[in-house]
Nucleic acid binder design. Structure first.
Ligand SMILES: [Zn+2]
Ligand SMILES: [Zn+2]
Ligand SMILES: [Zn+2]
Ligand SMILES: [Zn+2]
Lengths: 164, 164
DNA sequence: CTTATAGTTGTTACAATATAACATATCACA
DNA sequence: TGTGATATGTTATATTGTAACAACTATAAG
């Protein structure tokens, strides 16, 4: 999903793909995509915004009246372990992973205006980063690369409005 | 400060430099490096670990018995605005900035073993990243690039122990 | 079918991180 | 010295996240 596609796209596809692939991977891995876990994943995929844990808690209560913080955090832990979602460290929030089929590095572009979060592979950046880490003799466990700013779509909208 | 230098170095220099330059920049900018702010900065520079706000609160209490969370967070806000410290998003913690004199991108290498945080400029990575962001038509406000793993020094120690 | 086991969820309590709001004090400068 | 801006004191509360243990459920071997 590229930034110029986030605002005009068939989001049903995103949701269907994410849910279908997650279910398939769970079967393959012999782990359970329980009702709660699936519901949390669906709620995260409501749009391309990062979602906060306690917002998820409010949203799942109609479906799971017994839901408590632990309910959500456990589901989030599971979904993260399975690679179905990412945690956005700089927002204390979560987004669905856009590419479940390939292991990949995550570069997150977080728009302050529309709040969409775009996940990019950015292979050249990752190559340069790998080189740098090798130079530093640093053994990587995990990476968080999060860029805050204004996405292309929002910039364009703004310009359009100004010039109109 | 490169990773192979963090464990064997004259840390007094780090502290003195950081404090001196901060004081100088405050004068230049006409802002106040008050006692509280300076003490917080000194506490952050106790070592090269990331420090949590509430740890700072405990540590400053002998000096500022009236200190409350707001005391710390205000000082942290000030120090961040002035560029004297960075927030480590993935740790909810703070480190001193190693290079006050030049505006720079921050790539943080966070060792899970010794807990040292190394700040690197990584110009090639930043170049690649700038290109990627330009391609995405994304207007940057801030970046958080945080790598977790094992630093070179700790890897070497481990190997030494194993081979001994 | 029974039962052992691992995995999942319910539930309560609490820890850790961060901010709001307003009062008071201090600083810098006229 | 007065005055507005800046900084701090103080109380309360919001937000984010875990620990611990009990109860329930799926699974598979016997
Ligand atoms: Zn979509
Ligand atoms: Zn946007
Ligand atoms: Zn040092
Ligand atoms: Zn280390």
């Amino acid at each position: 999903m590229q930034s110029d596609q986030i605002k005009q796209h068939n989001h049903e596809n995103c949701v269907t793909t994410a849910l279908t692939q997650a279910a398939q991977l769970c079967t393959e891995r012999g782990v359970q995509l329980t009702a709660i876990r699936q519901q949390v994943l669906e709620l995260i995929w409501a749009d391309h915004h990062a979602v906060k844990a306690y917002d998820l808690l409010e949203r799942i209560k109609p479906l799971q009246s017994a839901a408590k913080p632990a309910t959500i955090y456990r589901a989030l832990d599971f979904l993260r372990e399975q690679g179905f979602i990412h945690r956005v460290e700089s927002l204390n929030a979560f987004i669905g992973c856009c590419d479940l089929k390939t292991t990949h590095e995550q570069l997150l572009l977080i728009c302050k205006q529309c709040e969409n979060v775009e996940e990019r592979h950015a292979d050249l950046v990752m190559q340069a980063l790998s080189q740098e880490l090798q130079n530093a003799n640093f053994l990587v466990h995990s990476k968080a690369i999060e860029i805050h700013g204004i996405c292309g779509h929002c910039t364009q909208e703004k310009n359009t409005v100004v010039s109109a």
